[in-house]
Amino acid sequence: DEWTVEDKVLFEQAFSFHGKSFHRIQQMLPDKTIASLVKYYYSWKKTR
């Protein structure tokens, strides 16, 4: 599952609005599965 720079920026924006409500985040990133969002979240969180 490839994440473009745009995907990553959108994820951060969606996360700032919705927190860990992955269903709502998915509405902003409809091409990503919930599982993909959760997996990305945990790898992204480690870099914070």
Rank of each mutant, 00 (worst) to 15 (best):
D7L: 02
Q26F: 06
H18A: 02
L29M: 13
R24T: 11
V5G: 05
F22T: 03
A14Y: 07
K20W: 07
A35L: 13
D1V: 15
Y42A: 12
K39C: 07
F15Y: 02
F22E: 03
H18N: 02
E12M: 02
L29Y: 04
Q27Y: 03
A14I: 05
E2N: 15
F22S: 01
T33V: 02
V9G: 12
K46M: 05
A35N: 12
A35W: 09
P30H: 08
H23R: 09
I25E: 04
Y40I: 10
M28E: 06
K39W: 05
R24G: 03
V5K: 14
K45I: 09
L29E: 00
K8S: 02
K32C: 02
I34N: 11
M28K: 04
A35H: 12
S36V: 03
W44N: 15
S16T: 09
Y41T: 03
G19I: 05
K20D: 07
H23K: 15
F15L: 05
K46W: 04
T33A: 07
T4G: 01
F11N: 04
E6A: 10
K20A: 10
K45W: 06
Y41C: 08
W3I: 09
W44Q: 03
A14S: 00
L10M: 15
H23T: 12
K8F: 01
L37A: 05
K32H: 09
W44E: 08
V9W: 12
I25K: 08
A35F: 13
H23W: 07
E2H: 11
H18G: 03
H23V: 11
Q13C: 00
D31S: 15
S43R: 14
V5H: 05
Y41E: 08
H23Y: 04
W3G: 00
L37W: 02
A35G: 14
S16W: 07
K8Q: 09
V9F: 08
L37S: 02
T4P: 01
K45Q: 13
K39P: 01
Y42N: 14
S16D: 14
S36W: 01
Q27W: 00
T33W: 04
L10A: 10
Q27P: 02
F11A: 04
F22M: 07
S16K: 12
Y41G: 01
V5T: 09
D31G: 14
V5R: 12
Q26W: 02
F17N: 12
S21R: 15
K45Y: 15
I25F: 01
Q27S: 08
Y41W: 07
Y42M: 15
T47Q: 00
S21K: 11
K39T: 09
D31R: 11
D31W: 08
H23N: 13
F22R: 00
W3Q: 08
Y42G: 14
H18Q: 01
F17E: 15
L37R: 01
I34D: 09
F15I: 14
A14V: 03
L10S: 03
K8H: 06
